[in-house]
């Protein structure tokens, strides 16, 4: 009896703690949506107005009229999808090579790939910017890479630096080591299948879950990535992605007087993708966790 009661109390305490944390996690977003429907007067009112008396839905058209969200969304979508596709494919192949083949420099290459995770992204920004501007014969450049702007005004510049990802390779390798026994490969080889055929016909179908996980993580990460697109869009505004667009919101509206419009813009940028991403919680977390669990 006593023990049961103790259990009940501890359970209630856990619920309370989790509830406080849970509320603190979503309250900012609830406030965001509710405030995006306020009038300016309600926004600064004292005592504060938590829920607008009459939802100002026309805040949204006002924002959309001034801020090209459609362009931001389509840029983000095209870039993130392309990156995701490339990362998934390159990770599958490279991960498999590391997991199931032996070759010279294997250990060296693998540690090198992994150690790149520790390189700060900024180290690449200036050289890559320079590099992309100097690609010969593209974007008005001469054969020596001078005179024009290279790839700087093409979406490729947002995609190319991300088509291989060490995490993805590592994740795929873990999966192949754990889930695909060598015997399976041997059996297929005895049947006379070529290595490439084995990979495409046999391995890829089995590794769908891990590839899906890699794809989801890559997509979400790329979708939220700000730094490189920000640098690029300062000279090529037509390439602005969603995070860059949201950063510009404060510039499109005077932040001292149009808070509700900025918040409406943030709502447009945050809420729809989040509602989709949240469905992938399990894959995302287990994917990231997998790289950590079995090292």
């Amino acid at each position: 009896m006593n023990r049961k009661r103790k259990r009940l109390i501890s359970r209630i305490i856990i619920y309370i703690i989790l509830a406080i944390i849970g509320i603190s996690m979503i309250l900012p977003f609830v406030w965001l949506v509710s405030s995006s429907l306020k009038t300016r007067a309600e926004f600064v009112a004292k005592p504060p107005v938590w829920i607008p008396e009459k939802a100002q839905w026309n805040n949204y058209p006002k924002v959309i009229k001034k801020v090209p969200f459609l362009k931001y969304y389509s840029n983000s979508l095209i870039v993130s999808l392309s990156v995701t596709l490339c990362v998934t494919i390159t990770s599958a192949f490279a991960g498999f090579a590391f997991a199931k083949y032996n070759f010279k420099f294997k250990q060296f290459l693998f540690s090198f790939f992994l150690s790149t995770i520790m390189l700060p992204a900024f180290l690449f920004v200036v050289p890559e910017y320079f590099m992309f501007s100097k690609i010969p014969l593209i974007g008005g450049n001469s054969i020596w890479g001078t005179g024009g702007y290279g790839l700087l005004h093409s979406r490729l510049v947002l995609i190319l630096p991300f088509i291989v990802n060490s995490w993805g390779i590592f994740l795929a390798r873990q999966f192949y080591i754990i889930s695909i026994p060598d015997e399976l490969l041997q059996a297929a080889r005895i049947d006379g299948a070529s290595e490439f055929k084995i990979f495409i016909k046999l391995i890829i179908p089995i590794s769908k879950p891990v590839l899906a996980t890699i794809a989801i993580i890559t997509f979400i990460t790329q979708w939220n990535y700000l730094f490189w697109p920000l640098v690029i869009s300062s000279s090529a505004p037509e390439l602005s992605t969603l995070p860059v667009g949201m950063k510009m919101l404060a510039m499109a509206f005077d932040p001292a007087r149009n808070q509700q419009l900025i918040l409406a813009g943030l709502t447009i940028g945050i809420i729809p993708p989040s509602l989709i991403f949240i469905l992938f919680q399990k894959y995302y977390v287990s994917g990231i966790g997998m790289t950590g669990l079995k090292e």
Partner: peptide
Amino acid sequence: KIAVPFEDYLTKVEVSHISGNP
């Protein structure tokens, strides 16, 4: 017309010039 916030204007001028399509 290319709208640039005042705070970013100098960066914009410089980086656009570097990028070659100013």
